[in-house]
């Protein structure tokens, strides 16, 4: 019953989503498979970053170093492939590296008690610094374009990047909502002191959340390279902030606990919004402006809708009889 209420909160997002999709279909003319593919591929990294952020935000923390991790991992993959290392070796290694960076973030936040915003922002500066040293400030490209085939291949008819995204989503959601670890993450976010006294090692829980975020960022970096073949674009902090927006759009914010379906909606909404602004032919200079306004409106609508729900729940007489009361007769 509670889950249903949580889902109701998404109604404004869903409405906006369908309006945007409808409008996009009407105005955009024929959509070819190719444009969809390119579009999806270029936005998969955002999605994976947002998924990785989800457990961290449920624990009432934030990770601003993900974009830097993704960037560094992208560069390392390119360097690795160019020096003829086998891909099967590179990918596990870079994922491990992502988790390690998350571990450091987690230790600094949980054990040394530095605020997560400071910690992860400084970490992003450090990583960017390391990356400059590795690339010497130049753009790095893949020498051979074989790796790009990964981005174009399909698994069971689904493009590999999308499949990766889905697996990532399933993995994180399983961990957060169905395992002991996940329950502990939620509890720690809800009341750290109480969790500590309940026998949860909250430092460890926080550290693991940051490790999940780090490895997801690494995966996002891998997908970015598979899509473009370079780290030419250079991800920046705005990617991270977008990821936060996606998670918040999905109904998780720093005050409430999360909702798995919400993340998917948040992601779709963000994609479509980004896409449709281009589709409508809105001037590039105005796109940012529009995006900001629309996102703010959706978030406001979400909150307002939530309050409406609360009010209607508290009003007497609006009882839905399905509520089976376990209350004991007095």
């Amino acid at each position: 019953m509670n889950i249903q209420e949580e889902n109701l909160r998404l109604v404004p997002s869903v409405v906006l989503l369908s309006v945007l999709v409808g409008a996009a279909l009407l105005t955009a003319g024929p959509i070819t498979g190719e444009t969809v593919r390119i579009f999806v591929q270029s936005t998969v990294p955002y999605g994976i970053i947002a998924i990785g952020l989800y457990p961290v935000m449920i624990g009432k923390h934030i990770d601003l170093s993900q974009f830097a991790i993704a960037d560094l991992i992208g560069a390392l993959i390119i360097v690795g492939i160019n020096t003829q290392l086998p891909i099967a070796m590179i990918i596990p290694l870079v994922l491990l590296l992502g988790a390690l960076i998350g571990l450091v973030n987690g230790i600094v936040v949980a054990r040394l008690r530095v605020h997560p915003i400071l910690t992860t922002y400084c970490m992003s500066l450090i990583i960017k610094g390391v990356m400059f040293i590795i690339t010497k400030g130049r753009l790095v490209y893949l020498d051979s374009l074989d790796f790009l085939q990964v981005g174009k291949s399909t698994i069971l008819g689904i493009p590999t990047p999308v499949m990766t995204l889905l697996l990532c989503f399933a993995g994180v959601m399983y961990t957060v909502h169905l395992t002991i670890l996940g329950r502990k993450i939620i509890a720690t976010g809800s009341n750290g002191r109480a969790s500590f006294f309940s026998g949860i090692r909250i430092d460890d829980v926080k550290i693991i959340a940051f490790m999940i975020s780090g490895s997801c960022a690494a995966l996002a970096g891998t997908m970015a390279v598979a899509a473009s073949g370079s780290v030419a674009t250079g991800l920046d902090l705005s990617v991270n902030l977008s990821a936060i927006v996606i998670v918040v759009l999905g109904g998780t914010d720093l005050l409430r606990k999360g909702n798995p379906l919400g993340l998917i909606f948040g992601l779709l909404l963000f994609w479509i919004l980004e896409r449709s602004l281009i589709q409508y032919g809105i001037d590039e200079h105005y796109q940012q402006l529009f995006k900001g306004i629309v996102l703010l409106m959706v978030i406001l609508a979400n909150n307002g809708f939530h309050q409406l729900l609360e009010v209607s729940r508290k009003r007497p007489g609006s009882a839905d009889e399905q509520n089976q009361t376990l209350e004991h007769s007095r």
């Binding site: 939620i186 809800s190 009341n191 109480a194 969790s195």
Partner: peptide, 10 residues
């Protein structure tokens, strides 16, 4: 309330 229960959890 402070040290044992999670008020916003079921």
């Amino acid at each position: 309330r402070k040290d044992w229960l999670h008020e916003d959890m079921p």
